[in-house]
Nucleic acid binder design. Sequence first.
DNA 1: AGGTGTGAAGGATTTCACAGCC
DNA 2: GGCTGTGAAATCCTTCACACCT
Lengths: 215, 215
Amino acid sequence: MVRPEGIPAPVVRRLSLYLRHLESVRAEDRPTVSSRELSRALGITDTQVRKDLAHFGQFGQRGIGYRVAGLVTRMRQILGTDRLWNVILIGAGNLGSALMRYRGFKRKNFRIVAVLDNDTARIGTAVPGLALDTIQPITALREIVRQYDVKMAISAVPAEAAQSIVDQLAEAGIRGILNFAPVILQPVPGVRIETVDLAVLLEQLTFQLNIGTGA
Amino acid sequence: MVRPEGIPAPVVRRLSLYLRHLESVRAEDRPTVSSRELSRALGITDTQVRKDLAHFGQFGQRGIGYRVAGLVTRMRQILGTDRLWNVILIGAGNLGSALMRYRGFKRKNFRIVAVLDNDTARIGTAVPGLALDTIQPITALREIVRQYDVKMAISAVPAEAAQSIVDQLAEAGIRGILNFAPVILQPVPGVRIETVDLAVLLEQLTFQLNIGTGA
DNA sequence: AGGTGTGAAGGATTTCACAGCC
DNA sequence: GGCTGTGAAATCCTTCACACCT
């Protein structure tokens, strides 16, 4: 039994990258990959790849490499994407509207079942293709979570509302939140929060470009 | 003179978070912050905050804390966001359309000057508010980069096109790229690439929720 | 030869402990 | 008392070196 808490954070981050490369290898019908190939694809060392994979068991065959099919299956199990996850999206603004149509989620076995917002002007608007095909009020949160057994939410609400939404989501039973609001959210026990701040990502880049510019 | 290469990567990542909190403190007109407060806001230790800030000089006053105004100014210099950066956006699809309207960039001194795409159906479409207010063809890349002195690009193109776009951007003189395509891009000398894979972020969350579920 | 698995070494980052200033 | 700055210790992560398998 693998216990996520026991896996170093850097390893977890690389796991998804391994899987992404493995899937592209499988698309080419190659039966095996070496740690060398994986390492070059990700820009790390081959030892690191072997050490990382060793956290989850021994899937390699000496002299041959890793069997792609088996490894893909195993990694999906490990990551939890071997089954479908229902996800709700909070906030139907600019970013939220793009996210509800984003195709990449479905390919990874995530299904957005509903979009919630608290702007009355938006509630009721059609959202084709979802289980609940109109925008729902936040007051429907608890019921939707229960009905669709939702464990994860994507929050694309304004910064001012973000913490309050997190608290409500936690309260409704959500266990993981992908947050796009540019604020540091205070943790809630039992709930994982992953924040993506788009402006911060650009800022990280400028720092790197800023060599010798007076900083 | 601060040399970005000399700063540990984890410190750089936290820098933006410090700045974000400092700006909110300044909005409340409080003159100083302690490392204790900063540490609690970010969920790290106070020693870490002091060690991090010490990389860039000594801005604190013992017994008092850090002067917010001075620290904000200094951090912006360090990160390079004390001046305006012109940015181009490649790809006017689903995600690209949201990004071109995203307000968070402007607040951080990033200005999207043009949107480029190679789909003829999109080229020429109006994009209100930008320096170049219609969608441009990719062939205009070099000229736009030169004219607006663009150093950074956001790439929101399909996975298949991503590497080719990176190569073209590098060729045109772009130095930093924020990439949303779910692929591992091969590095180009002199160009920083930061990839955000939205599905991978959700996958990271499911891993954390996956305790004892057979993985 | 080509390749994985892994203890041991090395390096990087975080935390401790405390000197020193307001 | 409150708070920063910083060597030293501890911890975490990566790389080395090599046993071992095909």
